[in-house]
Structure formats: structure tokens, C-alpha cells
């Protein structure tokens, strides 16, 4: 087993870096995209609320594999239009396409998490904000958002791990993440142990993330 890792250690490490960076960037970008969507889901009953619900239903309703294919091969069909508006450099690159699809996908899940935590903020907090004469924006930015974030942290941590697993699908659109490297090394060696080595990598990554999350959660626990 170890020989199979050592012989291809350069590829394994590259894959590890690609997987980790894709997951990390997607979760952060996804969070910022999810914020307005989650707030609209929680607060708006008008058009905004409907649009937010539509977004969530579309991106949670489709398998990620289909979303990846749609972004990569589907939008690739419109390459001349994308060239014309100067966006082809994003869609030309499989890594960017993967990041985009993962971000759009995780944003839908994170939006629901944010909605949930906003809805569980007790009425007393709102009353205090009113009593302190905070403007709606200040109240949102300085009080509600931090509390919502602290409340959402465990669920977002969970989503982080689900997203890490989901990243493995970018291998299907030619990105050499951990799974992509595993598939390549498997095609070279036809040795099933390759997939077990990949499994060990994912186990270690998840354990590392869980350990980090526990530390972060403890810091924010007083707020939630």
C-alpha cells in the first residue's frame, strides 16, 4: 500500500491540495452568496422571498453531478457568446467551472442553514435592539448576524464535510483533485488499492476538519 503512495506521492499531494483548496474556497464564497439568500428566505414574503426559494429548490433539487455537467459541458456550448462578453476564461477552465458549481450548490444549503438560525433568534433580542434604538442595518450587522453565525456554525461545519465529499465529483469534469488523481493512478496500475489510499486521504481530511471545527465552535459557543 505504502509503495503505491510513494510511487505517486507527487500526484497524491497535488490532488490533496486541489481538493482542499476547492472545498475551502467554495465554502467561503458559498457563505457570502448564501447570506442574502438566507436573509430573504427568512424575512421576505415578497418577490425576493420567492426568488430565494426558487434558487434553493433548483440547486438542492439537482444532483451535483448534473450541475457540474451543466456548467462545464452545457455552458461550454455557448462558448462564442461567453467569449463575446469576456467570461470564457472562467468557463474554459475546468477548475473554475468546478468551483462555480460547488459554490452555487453549497450556497443553497448554507442559505437554508442561515434561514434556520435567523428564525431561532428569540424575540427578546429584537426587543433589545429596538430599546437600544439601533437602526435596522446596524442591528442586523452587529447583533443578528453574529448570533445567527454562531448558531449556524455546527450546521455549516457539517456542510463543510459534505462539500469536501462532494468535491470528488469534479474529477468527472477532468479536474485532478484527490479523486481525479486516484482515477488516473488506477488507470495506470489497475490496482484497486489505489481507491483505498484515496479513502485514507479523505478520512484524514475529514478528521482534520472536524478537529478544527470543534475548536472554532468552542470559541463561538457563548454567543449561540
Amino acid at each position: 500500500m505504502l509503495d503505491l503512495w510513494l510511487n505517486y506521492r507527487g500526484l497524491w499531494l497535488e490532488g490533496l491540495v486541489t481538493t482542499a483548496s476547492l472545498t475551502g474556497l467554495a465554502i467561503v464564497f458559498g457563505f457570502f452568496l448564501a447570506l442574502p439568500i438566507g436573509v430573504l428566505r427568512a424575512k421576505s414574503t415578497g418577490l425576493g422571498g420567492w426568488l430565494a426559494l426558487g434558487y434553493v429548490n433548483v440547486f438542492r433539487g439537482m444532483p451535483l453531478l448534473v450541475q457540474l455537467f451543466l456548467v462545464y459541458y452545457g455552458l461550454g456550448q455557448f462558448n462564442s457568446e461567453l467569449r463575446a462578453i469576456g467570461l470564457w476564461w472562467i468557463f474554459r477552465d475546468a477548475w473554475y467551472c468546478g468551483l462555480l458549481a460547488l459554490t452555487l450548490n453549497t450556497a443553497a444549503y448554507q442559505a437554508e442553514i442561515i434561514r434556520g438560525s435567523l428564525q431561532t433568534i428569540p424575540a427578546s433580542v429584537y426587543e433589545t435592539n429596538a430599546a437600544l434604538n439601533l437602526t435596522r442595518w446596524t442591528a442586523f450587522r452587529r447583533v443578528l448576524l453574529p448570533i445567527a453565525f454562531a448558531k449556524a456554525l455546527p450546521a455549516i461545519g457539517n456542510e463543510f464535510i459534505l462539500l469536501l465529499k462532494a468535491t470528488s465529483l469534479v474529477a468527472i469534469i477532468t479536474v485532478f483533485d484527490l479523486m481525479g488523481q486516484a482515477r488516473y493512478i488506477f488507470s495506470e496500475t489497475l490496482d484497486l488499492r489505489v481507491y483505498y489510499i484515496a479513502a485514507v486521504h479523505y478520512l484524514l481530511l475529514v478528521l482534520a476538519i472536524e478537529w478544527a471545527l470543534r475548536r472554532i465552535e468552542r470559541r463561538f459557543a457563548w454567543m449561540a
Partner: peptide, 30 residues
Amino acid sequence: SKVLNQYFPDSEIKLYPKLGEAFLDMESGR
């Protein structure tokens, strides 16, 4: 894929699970 890896080290090489997907990427210019 063996030929590309062995003889074309100075080009970027992309490998597809299905050949049809490589054709789609030719048509889109990737």
C-alpha cells in the same frame, strides 16, 4: 494518454472519462 504523457511533456494534457466528452471540449474550444 500514454503517448501524450510520454512524448508531449510541454503541453497541457486533459483526460476524459468518455471520448465523447473530449469531443465536446474540442467543439467548445477548451
